[in-house]
Structures are given as C-alpha cells and as structure tokens.
C-alpha cells in the first residue's frame, strides 16, 4: 500500500473513543491526529545527549494517563504490590533508603530493568485490551476491533491513538505501517485481542517511551 493511500485511509477512519473526554481536563486526550508525520531526511543529532530514564514511577504514571487506567491498577505483582514503586523500584531507578540502604539510584540499569519495564507495559496493555474487548461500547482504544472491525483502517486508527497517547506525537508512515502490519504476522485465534496488546506493548516499551 502506498503511503498516500495509507494516509487517505486513515483520514476516513473513525476517531478513537478517547476524544469523548472532558475538554477542560488538561490531562484528557485531544482528538486523535489522523495522519502520520514523517521527519526530514537529514537529522541533526544531539551534541550533548543528556538522556534520562524516566524511572518506574513516572513511567507508570505516564502509562496510566496514556491508557486511561487508574494508576494503582497499572501493574501489581501477584495482585498485591505495585511493580513500579515497590517490587521493581530499585531496578527501575528508584531508591530504598529506609529499609534497604539504597540511597541513590543504581548507576547503571541492571539486566532486570528492561524486563521489569516490559512487565509493567505487559500488565497495563493487557488490562487495557481486556477491558476494551469486554465492553466495546465504552472502549478507550480498541472498540472497533472488539466489534469485529480488523481492517487496516481500524488498526491504523489504533496505532495513531497509541502514538498520540503514549509518545505524544504522530507516528511516521513507516512506524504506522510496521505496527499495523504486525497483525499479519500473527497466527491462531483471537488475533484482534492479541494484536491490540502487542501493538501497545511494542510502542510503550520503546526507548522513547522510557527515556526523555
């Protein structure tokens, strides 16, 4: 499919349900953009890239806001303890001063850090998808898919919304095509539900989502 055609399809696609939110709420979603945005061919890299890890707490806050979940339901290990601020707190750049004597964040991310980050995203994205598929009429992201529309347009609209809400920008055409195309790589049952989770996880665990 050509990029132009893809963009045209998106223009005709339904808008994500997130646009129903109160416009006066500064954290509420705005209307989901409908066209990808491609960068110029040349890039001027940062001269002094002072990139920081968001840390577990901020990351989970952003995920909650982006996926319209309550913060305390984003990820609970064994159903009892917050992944970001309790169980994986130190691995994700936090401290444990009173009990563990960890006064400062670890100087480098341990191997478990990206795994723990994935767990948070897997939990939140799975919850979002399960909730939307259980109640398509009030779904935040996946209403169309839950109601059986697995068209490229429907998936493209979801990807646009996920980029808008999780990365605060439009996807590029290449990103849009890649995430939409993931659907075609899946075999077996419940493809819409599975793709919904995976699209969210892939975007929510990019370095762009975890660092700033």
């Amino acid at each position: 499919m050509s990029r132009e055609l893809f963009a045209l399809i998106l223009l005709l696609a339904p808008v994500g349900c997130g646009s129903d939110a109160e416009p006066t709420d500064p954290t509420a979603p705005t209307a989901t953009p409908q066209t990808p945005t491609d960068p110029p061919p040349t890039v001027v890299p940062s001269f002094a890239p002072h990139v920081r890890f968001k840390g577990g707490a901020v990351y989970a806050n952003d995920l909650a806001r982006g996926l319209e979940l309550d913060r305390d339901e984003v990820c609970l290990e064994l159903g009892v303890s917050d992944c970001a601020t309790e169980v994986h707190k130190v691995a994700l750049g936090g401290v444990d001063p009173y009990d563990g004597g960890v006064y400062k964040p670890l100087p480098e991310a341990p191997v478990t850090a990206p795994i723990a980050l994935d767990r948070i995203a897997v939990s939140a994205c799975s919850l979002r998808a399960e909730r939307d598929f259980a109640a398509p009429s009030s779904a935040a992201f996946y209403g169309a898919l839950a109601q059986g529309d697995t068209s490229t347009e429907a998936r493209g609209s979801v990807v646009m919304a996920l980029y808008d809400r999780l990365l605060l920008r439009n996807p590029t055409t290449a990103e849009l095509e890649a995430v939409v195309g993931l659907y075609d790589e899946l075999d077996g049952d419940e493809l819409p539900r599975r793709w919904s989770k995976l699209a969210c996880i892939a975007i929510a665990t990019t370095t762009e989502a975890a660092f700033y």
């Binding site: 169980v87 994986h88 478990t112 795994i115 994935d118 767990r119 897997v122 799975s126 989770k197």
Partner: peptide, 13 residues
C-alpha cells in the same frame, strides 16, 4: 520476579 517479561502477569501475551 523481574526475570521474565510476562510470566506471572494475568492475561499477558
């Protein structure tokens, strides 16, 4: 618990 990206999470892929 941080040794697997999905195991132990309900409804995980």
């Amino acid at each position: 618990l941080a040794l697997d990206g999905r195991k132990g999470i309900r409804d995980a892929p």
